[in-house]
């Protein structure tokens, strides 16, 4: 299924890997399109194990953080789990400053993140 150009979806067993395609997730229009894609994936996959990859992302605004918080809430409401991976140092710092590193589990490596979901 195609979820639009902002997010590339692949599967690793039962884990859905969503790779963000933009290097800047700052503007409202882009954030809304990313949100549309991700919320659709969550709606289509009951009890989703969702791994969000930030490998290509260089900039993230507070509005994008807000969208991730809403996404996490939706995933949890649907009985699923959301984890993050491949955040570069400068992006991880944004999560640390806002203490969202306590809300989101994140991993440097994609494979480690995938293993962390268990079987």
């Amino acid at each position: 299924m195609n979820y639009g150009p902002r997010v590339e979806i692949s599967h690793e067993g039962r884990i859905v890997v969503a790779e963000l395609q933009d290097d800047e997730i700052l503007e409202e229009a882009i954030i809304n399109e990313v949100a549309d894609s991700l919320f659709s994936v969550v709606a289509d996959t009951p009890q989703i194990k969702l791994l969000l990859s930030f490998e290509k992302v260089k900039y993230l605004s507070s509005s994008a953080l807000g969208m991730l918080i809403r996404l996490n809430k939706r995933v949890e409401e649907n009985g699923g789990t959301l984890k993050l991976c491949q955040l570069r140092k400068s992006l991880y710092e944004i999560f640390a400053i806002t203490k969202l590193d306590r809300l989101f589990e994140s991993y440097d490596e994609k494979n480690t993140a995938i293993s962390s979901f268990g079987t």
Binding site: S62, S63, G66, I69, I94, I97, T98, L103
Partner: peptide, 16 residues
């Protein structure tokens, strides 16, 4: 960053 506000989607711009 307060625990009771951590899941609120707004209010982080000024902090950053």
């Amino acid at each position: 960053t307060l625990p009771e506000n951590l899941e609120r989607p707004n209010g982080r711009g000024i902090m950053l």
